[in-house]
Write a protein that binds this DNA or RNA. Structure first.
Length: 599
RNA sequence: GGCCCGGUAGCUCAGCUGGAUAGAGCACCAGCCUUCUAAGCUGGGGGUCAUUGGUUCGAAUCCAAUCCGGGUCACCA
């Protein structure tokens, strides 16, 4: 149990003893960290009790404070300041806490349970390379997977590849018309980029054709339908659905190029999946569910043969589930995949990392599953995140106005190299070590940049401004960690000392405010970790890590560790920094960010 | 128009289960390297927490209305 909740319970017990005739409730007790301008560690707010206990805050505070100091082993003293009871925790408690946990490299984690969670993320289309927005999705998914694991869940990381549909046919048509048999090898570029270029090419040609038709006096709507290149793409989709061997062969070849490109990008980003679904393999499954729904009369058929669900009583509209010609729509395949995931892995929860523009879609998906009586319905959770936009507005692959993921990674690694060289910190590293270091710093900065913001908020990224390596960044945390490692190296203390070391430590001198401040933060980590899981928000861990690193840096400047005032202080501080480094490593590992021992 | 999300310092964001004088980073100004890594530290200026009303001992936080921005409401995915 955390210290804050121990205090809460102690206070609840105290109130029961002091006011046995009044029914006090633990939920009334607010325990916060004491503001730095007052003395004390934790504060109990007294105002909520005034009415109930019919006494002044000073009276209640004195009774409560006296009781807590006398009857618990937690506190040395208290102070009442205008309705706030500030409690000072015994130094011995902190020292004991430190001795018990400073070598625990899994501090804050919860025990494994049987709870099974799938988290689906990335889920790319195979007609274009990954861009900056996809990276937010990917890092969010990967970080949440690790955070959920650390909180005891069994996690399956899944990727659903959107490998069929009209958008892929567009790239194929453009390649056939203008490609002259180009391949990634011949062109010397990654397959996903090559295919993406033809997707852009298609749209350029499409727009031109429409412009020409409109110039000849056709209205725009009609022109969009009459466009020959669009018709070609639609014909291609029909052939694909019919299983035309030539079309399937081309489709397989071009998708193959894209997969190789994706694999390379994923590898560079340090991302992996336990299970990969392809929409081409799952899109038919939904039809069965729809037929079942028709039998159960949950769904209905219109005259033209199309199948619908009526969501009016839920405040929504009618939603199409199957076209008149019997082909499936986006929702159809999602119904199928949702059930497939559930049946295959017996999930308690199925998390979808998808941009907030699809809030409505997922809401409807969940609702339909519920109406159909599918048990997977309750477990569906949409981790909805805001889009990454450019200062000029949304990124559009079609128009080629995107920040490319591969380019961004290269730029970040370059930037970290430049800054390292500039500050003359390359000494003592081999070329190989430097390459690794630049990757660690560059990728760390990139991941942190995208994870430090609350997922549900949209972000604006200006490509003209490079991502900073100072201030609220991964670099800052990495630097603090490297500093700690440097001290430990010199003191010949392992990053993960064996737990018997320091056990003979005895504390005789009072803890300094800065020492206690860091310990307070260390103690809080488990709460941060579990909240970030329940709220599906990695940014709170970024925030916490930055603050902890900042506290260390302040401490580092104010007090020496190697040359502490006494051997006792040195031992204490070594334990503090061992645990600080350990938590920073743990927290950043969840984000997929590595912390170097030297930089 | 209906529904959903957002609006906090010049910029990017924390804080939101109501609590003490609203916090960081960037940028700007002034200091700090013969002493454990200055990718750092200390201090300073900078705020009508979109607006108005309500709830109460107390509101950035809860409620209502309004304004602004975005998303969505396809036989696209």
């Amino acid at each position: 149990m955390t210290l804050a909740s121990q205090i809460k319970h102690a206070a609840a017990d105290a109130l029961k003893h002091l006011y046995p005739e009044v029914a006090t409730d633990i939920s009334m007790i607010g325990v916060n960290q004491t503001k730095p301008e007052f003395s004390g560690d934790y504060t109990i707010v007294l105002f909520p009790f005034l009415k109930l206990l019919k006494q002044k805050p000073d009276v209640i505070g004195k009774l409560l404070g006296d009781y807590l100091v006398a009857k618990t082993e937690l506190f040395t003293s208290y102070e009442i300041v205008s309705g706030f009871l500030n409690l000072t925790v015994k130094d011995a408690w902190w020292v004991n806490f430190l001795l018990n946990h400073f070598t625990d490299t899994h501090y804050g984690e919860r025990n494994k349970t049987d709870r099974r969670v799938m988290i689906e993320y990335s889920s790319p289309n195979t007609n274009k390379p990954l861009h900056f927005g996809h990276m937010r999705n990917i890092f969010l998914g990967a970080a949440m997977a690790e955070i959920l694991k650390a909180n005891g869940n069994q996690v399956v990381k899944a990727n659903l590849i959107n490998d069929r549909g009209i958008h892929i046919c567009k790239s194929m048509i453009a390649w056939m018309k203008y490609g002259n048999g180009a391949t990634p090898e011949k062109a010397g570029i990654k397959g996903d980029h090559l295919v993406g270029d033809y997707y852009v090419k298609f749209n350029d040609e499409y727009k031109q054709e429409i412009a020409q038709l409109v110039a000849r006096g056709m209205d725009e709507k009609k022109a969009e339908k009459e466009s020959s290149i669009m018709r070609d793409a639609q014909d291609l989709l029909v052939k694909w659905e019919a299983g035309d061997t030539e079309v399937r062969k081309l489709w397989e070849m071009m998708n193959g190029w894209v997969y190789l490109g994706f694999d390379e990008s994923y590898k560079r980003l340090g991302i992996s999946f336990d299970k990969v679904y392809h929409e081409s393999e799952t899109y038919l499954l939904g039809k069965k569910i729809v037929e079942e729904g028709l039998r159960k009369k949950v769904l209905f058929k219109k005259e033209d043969g199309s199948v619908w669900v009526d969501l009016k009583e839920d405040g929504l509209d009618e939603k199409l589930l199957l076209r008149g010609d019997g082909t499936s729509v986006y929702m159809t395949q999602d119904l199928g995949t949702a059930k497939l995931k559930y049946d295959e892995f017996k999930l308690n929860q199925s998390v979808y990392v998808i941009a907030d523009e699809q809030n409505y879609h997922i809401q409807v998906l969940k609702l339909i599953m519920k109406k159909l009586g599918e048990p997977c319905a309750d477990g569906i959770y949409h981790l909805s995140y805001g889009m990454v936009e450019l200062p000029t507005g949304r990124m559009k692959s079609r128009e080629g106005t995107v920040v490319d993921a591969d380019d961004m990674v290269s730029e970040m690694i370059n930037l970290s190299r430049e800054q390292t060289e500039q500050s003359g910190k390359t000494e003592g590293f081999s070329q190989e070590e430097l390459t690794k270091l630049y990757d660690t710093i560059g990728m760390g900065a990139l991941k942190f940049y995208l994870l430090r913001v609350d997922p549900k908020k949209k972000m604006i990224f200006d490509p003209k401004e490079s991502i900073d390596l100072h201030g609220y960044t991964a670099t800052f945390i990495q630097y603090a960690h490297a500093r700690i490692c440097s001290i430990l190296r010199k003191e010949k203390v392992s990053l993960t000392p064996d737990c018997t070391k320091f056990q003979s430590f005895v504390q005789t001198t009072e803890l300094l405010p800065l020492e206690k401040k860091i310990m307070l933060a260390l103690e809080e980590y488990p709460v941060i970790l579990s909240e970030s899981a329940s709220e599906f928000n990695p940014s709170s861990i970024c925030n916490y890590s930055f603050q902890l690193a900042q506290m260390f840096n302040t401490f580092y400047d104010a007090h020496s560790i190697s040359k502490a005032e006494s051997e006792e202080k040195k031992q204490l501080r070594l334990m503090i920094i061992v645990m600080t480094a350990s938590i920073l490593r743990h927290a950043m590992n969840l984000m997929g960010i590595k912390l170097p021992e030297k930089m």
